[in-house]
């Protein structure tokens, strides 16, 4: 009896020490990871002339760099473009994918497996290999330099169909069966019963689509050529040359470009993290 007690105590104290070392290493890494962000904020709060002296001290704190960024760039347009494009894409993906998933999960029809696997095969095709035909396609229908050129190709997201199907499959059916018995249409069942129950999946897909669309660079870079139509990443990537070596201004523009997503992250941290952990989505 006593001997086990002593062993347990030793194990516990050993474990405590180990945990403490773990925490130390972890904190060191976390600080290292925060360093670039802090340095960006630090630089942005200095006057341009003082950024070339490398010191954390800010002798003359100023927000001029932020004011100048708003004045000299189309930042508000970029916010607007990113917000419209990302919201419409998220909305579209949720509607289109959940409807398809509902059919696959709840209905019986011919060649269902073929349809499902056909859709899943889409996960294998990265959008990046389609940029050339996409460009020709949107050129042909005269939609280059519109938000639609960015939104439309993102809508058929096979991965979202897969996530919704998994989620729908796991929902209890009693309610829908009763509704169907009462003569409710499939659309009514989908809209009134299944979608409300699937709110976590809707949130995960919507937020994740919103974030990846907001951050997308390659395709919007090709189709949005005019500065007043650009999304935040495209604008920052294209007009950065204009900042020259004004480091405070550059960092201010980077921070302003980051703020909306940092806000989204702080608001929806749980959904984003669960969405990733649950499905392993990655652009």
């Amino acid at each position: 009896m006593t001997s086990t007690g002593v062993t347990m105590e030793r194990i516990q104290s050993r474990e405590r020490l180990f945990n403490r070392i773990c925490a130390g290493v972890l904190i060191a890494f976390a600080l290292l990871w925060l360093l670039p962000l802090l340095w960006a904020v630090d630089t942005a709060l200095k006057p341009n002339e003082e950024t070339t002296r490398t010191t954390w001290l800010i002798d003359n704190p100023t927000v001029d760099a932020f004011t100048r960024t708003f004045r000299d760039t189309d930042m508000w347009s970029w916010y607007g473009a990113s917000f419209i494009i990302s919201s419409l894409t998220a909305l579209g993906v949720v509607v289109v994918a959940s409807m398809a998933a509902f059919a696959i999960s709840r209905m019986r029809f011919r060649h269902k497996n073929l349809v499902f696997w056909g859709i899943l095969a889409g996960i294998m095709i990265p959008g990046q290999v389609l940029i050339v035909p996409w460009f020709r396609e949107f050129d042909a229908v005269n939609l280059l330099n519109t938000y639609w050129a960015v939104i439309l190709p993102q809508l058929p997201a096979a991965i979202a169909v897969f996530i919704f199907k998994q989620f729908f499959d796991g929902l209890p059916r009693d309610l829908e069966e009763a509704a169907r018995m009462d003569g409710a249409s499939f659309f009514r069942v989908y809209r009134r019963i299944v979608l409300p129950l699937a709110r976590p999946a809707v949130a995960a897909v919507a937020i994740f689509t919103f974030v990846t669309t907001w951050n997308d660079l390659l395709w919007p870079l090709l189709v949005l050529s005019n500065p007043d139509l650009m999304t935040v990443p495209v604008g920052l990537a294209t007009v950065q040359g204009a900042f020259g070596i004004r480091y405070a201004d550059t960092m201010a523009s980077a921070i302003l470009g980051a703020i909306p997503l940092v806000a989204v992250f702080l608001l929806f941290q749980r959904q984003i993290v669960q969405g990733i952990a649950g499905s392993g989505l990655k652009g």
Binding site: Y79, G80, A81, F83, T146
Partner: peptide, 26 residues
């Protein structure tokens, strides 16, 4: 909170509004 943030953004972006919505038209 989200709605408030959107509202704030929209009011600040009034000047950019026409061009932004223009991206939806051909």
């Amino acid at each position: 909170v989200a709605a408030a943030a959107v509202g704030l953004g929209a009011s600040g972006a009034l000047g950019a509004c026409s061009s932004v919505v223009g991206g939806l038209g051909a």
